[in-house]
Simulated scan of single mutants.
Amino acid sequence: MNWLKIIAAAGFEVGWVIGLTHSSNIIEWLGTVIAIFLSFYLLIQASKVLPVGTTYAIFVGLGTTGVTLCDFLIFGQPLNIGKIFLIFILLAGVLGLKLATSNEKGA
């Protein structure tokens, strides 16, 4: 369950990063603030049970990947082979951290 909190936190991270860049009215800014709160709340809750270093690395890796993909898919930013390669390396590192982390306390 705690790993799902990290995934959800990364999803909210994508939302607030996009919100910081593209918000133009009070409703969008309010949504951005709520996404910031939920993102860090879920990250902190998961970090109480899971190893902090692994938790944060996975959070940042998924968030970075999500923002890059949203930039490409939604906002039309260019995506070259170098970015794709680096995203795969990042995701491989995140998966490796997940597999290497003991699951004793926080599954």
Rank of each mutant, 00 (worst) to 15 (best):
M1N: 08
N2R: 03
L4E: 12
I7P: 09
A8E: 08
A8R: 09
A9F: 00
A9C: 07
A10R: 02
A10K: 01
G11Y: 04
G11V: 01
F12G: 03
E13V: 01
E13S: 14
V14I: 13
V14F: 10
G15F: 09
G15H: 01
W16C: 12
V17Q: 02
V17Y: 06
L20A: 15
L20V: 11
T21W: 15
T21H: 11
H22N: 14
H22L: 12
S23H: 09
S23T: 08
S23Y: 01
S24G: 15
N25C: 11
I26M: 12
I26W: 15
I27F: 15
E28P: 08
E28N: 13
W29R: 14
W29C: 10
W29G: 09
L30Y: 15
G31P: 07
V33H: 11
V33P: 04
V33L: 15
I34P: 09
A35D: 02
F37A: 13
L38V: 10
L38R: 04
L38W: 06
S39D: 11
S39E: 11
S39W: 02
F40E: 07
Y41L: 12
Y41E: 11
Y41M: 12
Y41V: 07
L42Q: 06
Q45T: 08
A46K: 00
A46I: 00
S47H: 02
S47G: 15
K48D: 09
K48M: 11
V49M: 03
V49S: 03
L50W: 05
L50E: 04
P51I: 04
P51Y: 06
V52H: 00
G53R: 03
T54M: 11
T55Y: 07
T55A: 08
T55G: 06
T55N: 00
A57D: 01
I58E: 03
V60N: 01
G61Y: 00
G61R: 00
L62M: 07
L62G: 00
G63E: 05
G63T: 07
G63Q: 05
G63K: 03
T64Q: 11
T64G: 09
T64D: 14
T64A: 12
T65W: 08
G66K: 07
G66Q: 12
V67H: 01
T68C: 06
T68P: 05
L69V: 12
C70A: 15
D71R: 00
F72A: 11
L73W: 12
L73C: 12
L73P: 03
I74D: 06
I74Q: 07
I74F: 04
F75C: 10
F75N: 10
F75A: 04
G76V: 01
G76M: 05
P78Q: 12
P78H: 11
N80L: 09
G82D: 14
G82P: 03
K83R: 14
K83I: 12
K83F: 04
F85N: 09
F85V: 10
F85E: 14
L86G: 06
I87L: 10
I87Y: 04
I87N: 04
F88T: 06
F88V: 13
L90H: 08
L91W: 02
A92N: 02
A92F: 10
A92D: 07
A92M: 10
G93F: 04
L95E: 03
G96L: 01
G96C: 00
G96E: 02
L97A: 13
L97R: 01
L97Y: 02
L97H: 03
L97T: 05
K98N: 10
K98S: 09
K98Q: 03
A100Q: 08
N103V: 10
N103D: 14
K105W: 01
K105G: 01
G106E: 07
A107H: 08
